[in-house]
Design a protein around this nucleic acid. Structure first.
Lengths: 235, 235
DNA sequence: CGCATGATTCAACATTCGTTGAATTGGATC
DNA sequence: GATCCAATTCAACGAATGTTGAATCATGCG
């Protein structure tokens, strides 16, 4: 845990805990939560492994700190789109969800790897915290689907919780698997794989949930527009 | 590797390599590929860790042996359904794919965990083998989609490779995440979560790919009918 | 300067891991 | 019964892991 706030002074702290988190994020992304070693994280951060224990209580605490700085911004943006007064069409709002999700998670395989792998294990340890972080996100997206039904844009018999699950989960799979699978299975380059994958997916998904599946989608804004401020640490 | 074939005799071999694989499958399923220890596998199998090295060359070799006995049966059943002469409707054939997939993978979280986690890492080590195993499966399902377009059952602009990806991947997610997520997010019991999840998913997916999304689905056979012979080792 | 205190490093701990070589068991064959 | 050999166990190796307590460094304040 960071100590007392420093009153003044040029730069007495050489290693900001955030720099350690950056390193941790990268190593977690590369090796996965379990296989990532504190020594590798320390090496990435350019400090001693023991220093990590000065700033964080444990490896797990460091990870929850990672969650704590990643999820709230996502939730905040989602809640804006989920505002019941939002005048945009349901299709556009859902596409906006995809864009938010995309911007925040594209450059952070560590969080994705966690969501993918660690929730499955069940109720031990981190999972409770994850639920606390993820539930509001799920509920925000779900409320858009609920509003879509009320507005008559979506089919009335849509299972909105599962609909949310499908949308969010498949997005993660597209981010994780398509860049490595599609180039091998067909000739597509990495970036284009994700781009087309998401568009094809959204089109299929929309037909699945829309009350009028054959009505053409409105023009969708670019995915890559105004990228979020995720530190891309590739030295 | 198993030694020379034994000419006769009652039961000179006490520990069948398959029994070790059964144990490995269970421990891999519980702890994941990396975290599963040979000592835990040996304990589960009721033998010494060193015995594993008598029957298998390494931990990795044991895992590829696991793949080798799990994937071919799946592929074999899928290729029957993918036969171009199959008279059933495309919807029914795809539902049959779901049932096959479901029967073989429901009780084997280890393989799912592998597919989920290990492919992402890229081209190192096991991934090549996985691709060899998985590619024919993907292609079998894809050919059903291609035939569906030719027959006029599916929309002509369907991206069949991505369509296959969506179908198969979301199925895995449903098997892995719904049993732990849905009971927490709503009140659903475990088994029912997967059951309804798969039905809702297939309905949504079909509307997404069908040429006539609003035409009602034919009655779908039960998922749980004639379960496959997967040893459920829960002592 | 001297000293207190936060920041960082060093060295080591107990544990667990995958793996291996030697030793032991036990049934089949002579 | 002696022998052979596959099957199994025992004990240990070296490496890697999360973690910790003591020691060291560097800076701000008196």
């Amino acid at each position: 845990m960071p100590h007392a706030p420093r009153p003044r002074g040029p730069k007495p702290i050489r290693m900001d805990p955030d720099r350690i988190l950056d390193a941790a994020q990268e190593v977690f992304a590369r090796d996965g939560l379990r296989a990532a070693s504190l020594r590798a994280i320390a090496k990435q951060a350019g400090c001693d492994p023991a220093l990590i224990y000065y700033h964080f209580d444990s490896k797990e605490a460091m990870f929850t700190a990672l969650l704590a700085r990643r999820f709230p911004p996502i939730l905040q943006e989602l809640e804006v789109v989920a505002e019941p007064g939002d005048p945009r069409s349901t299709a556009l709002r859902l596409w906006e969800v995809v864009r938010i999700y995309h911007r925040h998670l594209k450059a952070d395989p560590a969080i994705r790897s966690l969501i993918r792998g660690e929730i499955v294990r069940g109720a031990e340890g981190l999972s409770g915290l994850i639920e606390v972080r993820i539930r509001p996100i799920v509920m925000a997206i779900r409320s858009i689907l609920d509003q879509g039904i009320s507005r008559g844009d979506l089919r009335a018999d849509l299972h909105t919780l599962l609909g949310t699950f499908f949308l969010a989960r498949m997005h993660l799979e597209i981010l994780d698997l398509l860049p490595t699978v599609l180039p091998r299975l067909m000739g597509l380059p990495h970036d284009q794989a994700v781009e087309t994958g998401l568009h094809v997916w959204f089109d299929l998904y929309w037909r699945g949930i829309a009350r009028d599946p054959l009505a053409p989608l409105p023009p969708l804004p670019e995915l890559a527009a105004d990228p979020i401020a995720i530190k891309e640490t590739h030295p």
